[in-house]
Write a protein that binds this DNA or RNA. Structure first.
Lengths: 109, 109
DNA sequence: CAAATACATTAGTATTGACTAATTGATTAG
DNA sequence: CTAATCAATTAGTCAATACTAATGTATTTG
């Protein structure tokens, strides 16, 4: 996958609010199943599975089947294209990155 | 505009490749007109104006009318919601942020 | 084995949205 | 003043996509 295709996939995948909410819940949970994700999502189980498929194709989540359940977890390298894009075009806004800079100091002084 | 609405607007706006390309060209140029943006974009002038309208509503660009031309420039605070979102959900991937850390050291040692 | 559970997939629907072609409004040039 | 230029907007079209309902496929339970 080329660089442009990667950022395109990630952006398009995270653009949908419902799918982004699914991703956020996966991030927050260590591991989470489809039924759990469906609960309180406002959409059907089928829709959740479709969103998970998109997220998986974008490299944002990974799955671990266990019995009849499938546990999903966030995938670190999935957000890399977005970080890279920000790095590339965010250079022009130094002051905005001071927030990130502070954060980075906190987590890795 | 609420926080969720802001990240939603920015994500959806940058999700389209053509519109993102327009934004990138605006970022790279100090200021740029609609005709210049239309040249080599592959779409019509009307489409460019529509994309610029979206970018403006998302707070990603600003305009400066001068005569019959309108100069567009990138708006710093427009990417803030994306940075904040990354800060919030990117904390979980420290190693990925090392790239950004290196970059930040370079631009502000 | 039969019923139930967990998830994926499919077909069909409705909405969104990106685009063009054309028009309009405004400003500048001849 | 008239032509031409720059940009925005409008109406209409086409494709993409988010969703539901239903079905399919394993796997577990009783």
């Amino acid at each position: 996958m080329t660089e442009a295709a990667a950022i395109n996939a990630v952006m398009r995948t995270l653009a949908d609010p419902t799918r982004r909410a699914v991703f956020e819940r996966v991030v927050m949970s260590d591991e989470i199943t489809v039924v759990e994700l469906t609960r309180g999502s406002g959409v059907t189980q089928g829709a959740i599975s479709q969103h998970l498929k998109s997220l998986k194709q974008a490299g944002l989540v990974a799955e671990r089947p266990e019995g009849r359940k499938v546990y999903y977890r966030a995938q670190p390298e999935g957000l890399a294209p977005l970080v890279d894009w920000m790095s590339h075009y965010g250079v022009f806004w130094r002051e905005r990155f001071s927030n990130l800079r502070t954060l980075l100091k906190e987590i890795d002084p």
